[in-house]
Amino acid sequence: NKARMSAAGIVGFALEAAPRTTRAQSMDVLSSQANIAGYKAVLVAAHHYQRFMPMLMTAAGTVKAARVLILGAGVAGLQAIATAKRLGAVIEASDVRPAVKEQIESLGGKFLDVPFVTDEEREIAQGVGGYARPMPPDWMRRQAELVHERAKAADIVITTALIPGRQAPVLLKEETVKAMKPGSVVVDLAAAQGGNCPLTVADEVVERHGVTLIGHTNLAGMVAADASALYARNVLDFLKLIIDKEGKLAIDMKDDIVAACLMTKSREPELTS
């Protein structure tokens, strides 16, 4: 598509390429849509889970709260924590970046801590531009062992881990799914990028080893009205950067947001430098 647009002389922008900076927050389409996906992931999981989410004390007996494990505490993961908490679940969450520990705990979740044993691990864990980076194999092994143990105790697992430009990391292995309780539910938000679980099937709901795996690739589209409204605001705020007071196109390549988002240039000389 980029080649065809370029050949046609079209000015093309990709808002998902906007830098993760304070000034660009209002046009961050990835965050606005991931926020919705994290919310809907919990509701979809609750729909497929055959028990209550909150603890209930009734005349017919006491129902234990659902245990929810969330892997990846970016925008989607944090919203999933907040939504699951509102529904009364007990929540554990894991992330490569130690900086999100306070955010997880402030939302009512418990942070699953995988200690760093080398300076390399600490440096990589800081991430770049708000994204996680691939961790060294030894740290991934230690995280996998902890995730395996906590997934066995969980009723619902929501995975949200993505690395830009790369296939999604495998966080929930087949042997872990086999060890989970029958009737458990997995929502894999990385299904479109290969999945955080190899058993996930994109755009399908399947059952494997007694566990329901949900691979919807457009959860934001299930909350269409608000998804569209938030996306429209993202686009509007971006247009303000490339249109002058007279309403004419004025693409300023000195603007870091505009420069990052520009994918193809026009043959017309309207770009300013």
Rank of each mutant, 00 (worst) to 15 (best):
M5Y: 13
P19I: 03
Q25H: 10
V29K: 01
L30G: 13
Q33I: 00
I36C: 07
G38T: 06
G38C: 02
V42A: 09
L43V: 03
H48I: 00
Y49L: 14
Y49T: 10
L56C: 09
A60F: 01
K64S: 14
A65W: 08
V68N: 03
V68D: 15
L69F: 10
L71V: 12
G74C: 05
V75M: 00
G77Y: 06
Q79K: 10
A80H: 05
I81D: 12
A84V: 08
K85V: 01
A89Y: 03
A89Q: 01
V96C: 14
V96D: 12
V96M: 13
R97Q: 14
E102G: 00
Q103R: 13
E105D: 03
L107G: 04
L107P: 07
G108H: 05
D113Y: 09
V117K: 15
D119I: 01
R122Q: 13
G129W: 00
G129S: 12
P136G: 07
P137Y: 06
M140W: 05
M140A: 14
R142P: 09
A144D: 13
V147M: 10
K152E: 15
T159F: 07
I163E: 00
A168E: 01
P169G: 11
L171W: 13
L172N: 03
L172P: 05
K173H: 14
K178P: 04
S184W: 07
V185D: 02
A190W: 10
Q193M: 08
G194R: 03
C197L: 04
P198W: 07
L199V: 10
A202I: 08
D203V: 05
E204W: 01
E204K: 15
V205I: 15
I214C: 08
G215L: 00
A220K: 00
G221D: 08
M222P: 04
M222I: 06
V223C: 15
L230Q: 12
L230A: 14
Y231F: 13
N234C: 15
L236S: 00
L239A: 09
L241E: 05
I242W: 04
I243P: 02
I243R: 14
G247P: 04
I251A: 10
D252P: 11
V258S: 05
L262Y: 06
S266M: 08
E270Y: 08
